[in-house]
């Protein structure tokens, strides 16, 4: 479905990527207001590691570089530290735009497949959805094994002393491995999520219908 949505969007907006961002990405209507001062890129603690820091992303959007922006790993690098938002002289909600772009890219199926932040986000979500609470033991372990079995074993062995220490001081309960504790009304929680998913799906459907 997401591939189809992407094609639909390409067709709808032709080469007006700025317009597409304005209409489809959360807070996207702010992008045109960037005055290219570079303060956000300079303030971002991760800026130097980004393929395209925020200022550049905004310029690329205006230059119509759709593929490059949406398949970029850049906006996945944002740690939500809010440094940029605090400093932007034009008061752009940069952090939110980064997340908006990441989310939109994922929806369209354009986000880079091996992006670790994206993978972790998925793990986190799947973990959370099960019991309505994050199972830290399982989340930790699945994180170790995120990049394959052998690497997982290696990481697990490396972390074993930390785990034993936590066990000793009762900071970790091994019983969480089986079942684990959950929210009081798990059924209600799942019903809530389902409703949210329906709303979201309806929204996308409407977008596709418009396209």
């Amino acid at each position: 479905m997401s591939q189809d949505l992407n094609t639909a969007m390409v067709e709808k907006y032709r080469n007006d990527f700025l317009k597409e961002v304005e209409e489809k990405v959360e807070e996207g209507e702010w992008v045109r207001m960037c005055m290219q001062c570079g303060v956000c890129s300079g303030s971002c603690p991760l800026g130097p590691y980004w393929e395209h820091p925020p200022q550049e992303i905004f310029m690329m959007i205006r230059a119509g570089k759709r593929e490059e922006v949406l398949s970029s790993s850049s906006m996945w690098m944002c740690t939500s530290c809010y440094n940029c938002i605090v400093r932007c002289p034009r008061e752009l909600p940069i952090t939110h735009i980064m997340h908006g772009l990441a989310h939109y890219a994922k929806r369209l199926g354009l986000a880079p497949k091996e992006q670790p932040t994206m993978k972790f986000a998925q793990l986190f979500w799947d973990n959370l959805v099960k019991q309505g609470r994050v199972n830290e033991l399982k989340l930790g372990l699945s994180l170790y094994f995120m990049n394959g079995f052998s690497e997982g074993v290696k990481t697990a062995l490396k972390m074993a002393p930390v785990g034993l220490g936590m066990l000793k001081t009762k900071r970790m309960n091994p019983m969480e491995m089986v079942g684990g504790h959950k929210v009081k009304d798990l059924k209600g929680f799942h019903a809530m999520l389902k409703k949210a998913e329906e709303i979201e799906a309806a929204k996308i459907e409407k977008q596709e219908a418009e396209a």
């Binding site: 700025l18 045109r32 207001m33 005055m35 290219q36 310029m59 205006r62 230059a63 034009r90």
Partner: peptide, 12 residues
């Protein structure tokens, strides 16, 4: 700012 709001594109 008003020009940006009107979608005038500024490019360095």
């Amino acid at each position: 700012r008003s020009a940006q709001d009107k979608e005038v594109i500024f490019s360095k």
